[in-house]
């Protein structure tokens, strides 16, 4: 294990150092030397045009994408080290996907309890009690016994968020959580995320929802061509964008 807290930011939950992800030799640079610290309590919103590397960056944080080089230090441990057991670290990071990825052959309640029971060896009744409490908070307690196909998109995504929360993660990673939703369902999912942010959850959110970035984000990062071109408070990013690419991007999306 590499202890690396001495350097910048003692509060950093995740330190990303010189992260590179190349495809086809080095022809395609999905991530081109990205370094950033994610501190506890941050709500970091990552914006940028499609193909800019936002999702690759997010998916690298829990090693769904294995970086070509660079390191990711999670709570003092370099998780890119092949000798560590990545499962132990993944369960400390919750992930929410664009397409929900609920388990279709399991009920809502089973979706929520399977990992606590299998991974955390939690008692079934205890896991179910905990899951029901969390499900109730997003207003879906009455859907516990149903299967994912019977839910609307917004309900599915709320269940997916609760599923991640049931592992009591230290950080939540959101990969375009509202991009696959019908417009009228975006709000209910953003509300749940907003509440999480207010409770102090550390969050990294890749999104096209500029309103959310502005209102909820504590830091906004702009990515293009696999690089982080600008990082600042939402206020600064949206009112005084510096980089011409960011200015151009905001002109198009706002």
């Amino acid at each position: 294990m590499t202890r690396d807290n001495a350097q910048s930011g003692k509060d950093a939950l995740i330190q990303v150092k010189n992260l590179k992800k190349y495809y086809k030799g080095d022809k395609i640079k999905a991530l081109d030397d990205v370094s950033i610290n994610i501190n506890r309590g941050d709500v970091m919103v990552v914006i940028g045009p499609s193909g800019s590397g936002k999702s690759t960056f997010l998916r690298s944080l829990n090693l769904l994408e294995v970086p070509t080089s660079g390191s990711i230090i999670f709570d003092g441990t370099d998780i890119t080290n092949e000798k560590i057991d990545i499962d132990k670290f993944r369960l400390r990071m919750g992930m929410v996907f664009q397409h929900f990825n609920l388990f279709p052959h399991k009920t809502v309640l089973e979706n929520l309890t399977i990992a606590p029971i299998l991974v955390k060896k939690m008692d079934r009744s205890e896991a179910e009690k905990m899951a029901m409490e969390k499900l109730d908070r997003v207003g879906l307690a009455d859907r516990a016994g149903t299967y994912p196909v019977q839910l609307s998109g917004g309900q599915k995504q709320r269940v997916a968020i609760v599923r991640a929360l049931c592992m009591n993660p230290e950080v939540m990673l959101f990969d375009e959580p509202t991009s696959a939703l019908d417009p009228e369902m975006v709000g209910e999912v953003l509300d749940v995320m907003k509440e999480l942010a207010h409770e102090g959850m550390t969050m990294v959110v890749v999104t096209h929802e500029m309103g959310f970035a502005r209102e909820v984000g504590s830091r906004v990062v702009f990515m293009a061509d696999g690089k982080m071109l600008e990082e600042n408070t939402p206020e600064q990013i949206f009112t005084h964008p510096q980089h011409p690419r960011l200015q151009d991007f905001l002109r198009k999306v706002l």
């Binding site: 769904l64 499962d87 996907f97 397409h99 388990f103």
Partner: peptide, 26 residues
Amino acid sequence: DQGQKEAARCLGMSSSQTLHHIVLPQ
């Protein structure tokens, strides 16, 4: 769907738990 496997692994399930509980039943 690849996303099923990713979701299970993100919840900390091992590859054999993922195969047994998530992939094979589907």
